[in-house]
Simulated assay, not measured.
Amino acid sequence: MNLLPAKYGAIVYSSDIKALARFYIDLFSMRVARETPELISLVKDGFNIVIHTPPFDMPAAQFSAVKLFMTVDNLAAAREKAQQFGGKAFDDEWSNPIFTVCNIADSDGNVIQLREFSV
């Protein structure tokens, strides 16, 4: 297991890191690379998400929104799974010649763009 910090990925703060990690593990088949009481580091195909308990009290207005993008095999199936795992699915889709996209929200309300490639 590689314990070096990833060069690319995202940090997502959560008040319930285990529940949010379970959402990403179940929906995107990510695996746990590292877990401590304060954080859970998830990886898949070179992408890293660190789900972290906020290190100190911070006003909600100071938190930055994070929007991830993830590739899935089937948008409709991913939307349905997102709802099953406590997230939300949005109806709109956009397409280009390479992929179709839509948005979901995870169980903490963070917006994620899903991409289904045509090629």
Rank of each mutant, 00 (worst) to 15 (best):
K67Y: 12
F47K: 04
D26W: 05
R115D: 08
I49P: 02
Y8R: 13
L3M: 09
G109C: 05
R79H: 08
P59S: 07
L27K: 01
A10S: 06
A105W: 03
G109Q: 05
Q84D: 13
S29P: 06
A76F: 11
A33R: 11
P54G: 03
N96K: 08
R79V: 05
P59T: 07
P97M: 10
V43H: 05
F28C: 02
N74K: 05
F90N: 11
H52T: 10
D108N: 13
C102S: 12
V43F: 03
K44N: 03
Y24T: 02
S118I: 12
G86I: 06
N2E: 10
A105S: 05
A61G: 14
S118D: 15
I25L: 00
N2W: 06
H52I: 11
Q113D: 05
P5Q: 05
D26Q: 09
M70K: 07
E80Q: 08
A82C: 01
L3I: 09
I104G: 00
L68A: 09
V43S: 02
A19Q: 12
T53M: 06
D106E: 10
L114D: 01
D92G: 11
G109M: 04
D57Q: 14
E80D: 09
M70G: 08
F99H: 12
A21W: 01
D16C: 15
L27R: 01
L75G: 05
L42Q: 00
C102R: 06
I17V: 07
F23G: 00
D45G: 07
Q84P: 09
H52R: 14
G87H: 01
L75M: 04
M58I: 10
A77T: 06
P54W: 02
S107N: 15
L114G: 01
D108Y: 10
L4Q: 11
K7L: 07
E80R: 06
K18A: 14
E38P: 07
C102L: 11
L4C: 11
N103V: 14
G87D: 02
P37W: 07
L4E: 13
D108V: 10
F117A: 11
K44T: 02
A89K: 00
